[in-house]
């Protein structure tokens, strides 16, 4: 009885492990959509101009994720989709930073021109951000 029960447990475990191991991973559709939205948002934010390296990196990761999806390698597709999503966020942040720097430079030049045109002396700078 004991020997028969042991054999039954071993057989059940073998089939259970095989079923779990052979179960196919689902396509990461949500991750792909999130990655696509992130890259599109980076493009809309002007990342192609202000953060071209980061933007092209995100596009490349998204392309690799799509290729893995076509090859039905969903684990790899999930990894690339996550990387593309984060890279897209970085491209957005860098684009925002580039735009802000451009606006700061333009406003500083405008203030300087305005001071010269109106002959307003420069006031002592206050402690603040660099």
């Amino acid at each position: 009885m004991t020997k028969r029960r042991t054999i039954a447990w071993i057989t059940f475990s073998f089939f259970a492990i095989g079923a779990v191991g052979c179960a196919q991973t689902k396509p990461p559709l949500a991750e792909m959509q999130e990655a696509t939205r992130s890259v599109d948002a980076a493009r809309d934010a002007g990342a192609a101009t202000y953060a071209s390296a980061e933007f092209h990196g995100a596009q490349e990761r998204l392309g690799q994720a799509r290729a893995a999806m076509r090859q039905e390698d969903y684990d790899l597709a999930t990894q690339f989709a996550d990387e593309a999503q984060v890279a897209g966020v970085l491209a957005q942040a860098r684009a925002r930073l580039g735009k802000d720097r451009e606006r700061v430079d333009a406003r500083a030049r405008e203030n300087e021109r305005l001071r010269n045109d109106l002959s307003v002396p420069v006031e002592p700078k206050q402690e603040g951000f660099q």
């Binding site: 942040a93 925002r96 930073l97 802000d100 720097r101 606006r103 700061v104 406003r107 603040g128 951000f129």
Partner: peptide, 15 residues
């Protein structure tokens, strides 16, 4: 990048 962007925005406000 986010922290630097906030810095630039505050600098723009000062300008």
């Amino acid at each position: 990048a986010a922290a630097q962007a906030v810095t630039q925005e505050r600098k723009l406000q000062a300008l």
